[in-house]
Design a protein around this nucleic acid. Structure first.
Length: 112
DNA sequence: TGATTGACCAACT
DNA sequence: CAGTTGGCCAATC
């Protein structure tokens, strides 16, 4: 799939949309896939307004590099993010995804 | 129109 | 070993 030659923003959304069910990825992985690992902060910012652009974006499948649900507080209800992840078969304990490596979905590999 | 910030990450002190 | 800093891009103050 040819990468969308749009703003950083839209490319982030494009990647997030392609995250498979029951899988998760990290901000840094997305940023690296887009070519700039330094812009991982941007990814987070983009997700902040993700619902404004497209409410259907699976933002709950994007966590930080440690598998910690740092952005859970942005889902309206902090419990919602964990709820959605567990609904996909992902175990979350203390805001951390258990067996994170197994659920990790790397756009660098999967979208190569 | 400059300065600040943001759901991050890695490197450096 | 923990706290700080630089980096990246876009939006808000």
């Amino acid at each position: 799939m040819p990468p969308i030659q749009q703003s950083f923003f839209l490319r982030v959304y494009d990647v997030v949309k392609q995250i498979p069910f029951g899988r998760v990825t990290s901000y840094g992985a997305i940023a690296t896939y887009l070519g700039s690992k330094g812009s991982s902060r941007m990814v987070g910012w983009a997700m902040n307004h993700s619902h404004t652009y497209d409410p259907s974006l699976p933002a709950h499948r994007v966590v930080n590099r440690n598998g910690m649900l740092t952005g859970k507080h942005h889902f309206g209800m902090p419990e919602l993010m964990q709820q959605l992840l567990e609904n996909e078969g992902i175990k979350v304990v203390d805001d951390c995804i258990q067996n994170f490596s197994s659920h990790f979905w790397d756009p660098l590999i999967e979208l190569s």
